[in-house]
């Protein structure tokens, strides 16, 4: 299979990786780069477990061809808790009981991260819209929404 070198910025570091450019960014992150925090739930953009930020916008890594990352900034869940301390969004998820099985959590946190970057004080409806592409089967979303609202308050301080 023809391979291509794709260069992009991953969690603040430049990476160059030879890969199948048509394969998904998800498989590049998980299978080639060993970043297993981004989860795979459906492979069709229908569950949001693989949500990462592409130039600051939430996308389904399973629907992004690896070649599309060329020259862009890719941010994954691994970037949020560097140095061992939790990001305020993650703290809020812990405090509000927003994590049950935890499988949707990384994608959910990344959607929240994208939201709070663009809207530091979202209302409950904005929060719901922002996570509407992330399925969670455990929580009924209530505590996730509470956590994102609490994270917004934390980030303001």
């Amino acid at each position: 299979m023809d391979k291509q070198v794709v260069s992009f910025n991953l969690n603040g570091e430049a990476v160059r990786v030879r890969c199948d450019p048509f394969s998904s960014l998800l498989s590049l992150l998980r299978d080639r780069l060993g970043l297993l925090g981004t989860k795979a739930g459906c492979g069709r953009g229908e569950c949001g477990a693989c949500t990462v930020l592409l130039d600051g916008l939430a996308v389904n890594a399973c629907l992004v061809p690896a070649g599309k990352a060329e020259g862009l900034n890719v941010e994954t869940i691994e970037n949020l808790s560097r140095g061992g301390s939790l990001h305020p969004i993650q703290e809020a998820f812990v405090e509000k009981g927003a994590v049950q099985c935890g499988f949707c959590t990384p994608g959910m946190v990344m959607s929240a991260h994208a939201l709070l970057k663009s809207d530091p004080a979202p209302g409950r409806e904005e929060i719901r819209k922002a996570i509407s592409g992330n399925l969670c089967r455990c929580s009924g979303y209530v505590q996730i929404e509470e956590a994102i609202a609490a994270a917004a308050d934390k980030l303001k301080d």
């Binding site: 297993l36 925090g37 808790s81 939790l86 812990v94 994590v99 935890g102």
Partner: peptide, 21 residues
């Protein structure tokens, strides 16, 4: 209060290892 899952830190940081991982 403030305690519910010994693995929550691993889950929220993406470090928890599931079967697919």
């Amino acid at each position: 209060r403030g305690f519910y899952d010994p693995e929550v830190w691993a889950k929220v940081t993406g470090r928890a290892r599931y079967g697919i991982d």
